[in-house]
Amino acid sequence: MISAYILITMLPGKTDKAIKEMRQLDNVAKISIIAGEYDIVIRAQVKNLEELLNVTDQIQMIEGVTKTTTQIIEKEISLQ
């Protein structure tokens, strides 16, 4: 299983509608709206890189998404 963070920059005023569409996507484990350089952080969980490509493709097709930055997780320590 591959996990990745997808950092998304949005056009102003499009976030709510985009979030609704993102919640329908497969392989999306978490979605956070954040304040700062990025507008949304998505945590994707996929079986292979091909699936990751599909997820990022689907995100980029959503209206209002202007840029995505994908960070693949190589190692992780977490409480949950």
Binding site: Y5, T69, T70, Q71, I73, E74, S78, Q80
Partner: peptide
């Protein structure tokens, strides 16, 4: 990870080396 309040430390490839929650 030793910092109190940190719940996730992810080593990532790409623009950033770590994403910490």
């Amino acid at each position: 990870w030793d910092i109190r309040g940190v719940s996730h430390v992810s080593v990532t490839s790409g623009k950033y080396d770590f994403i910490v929650k």
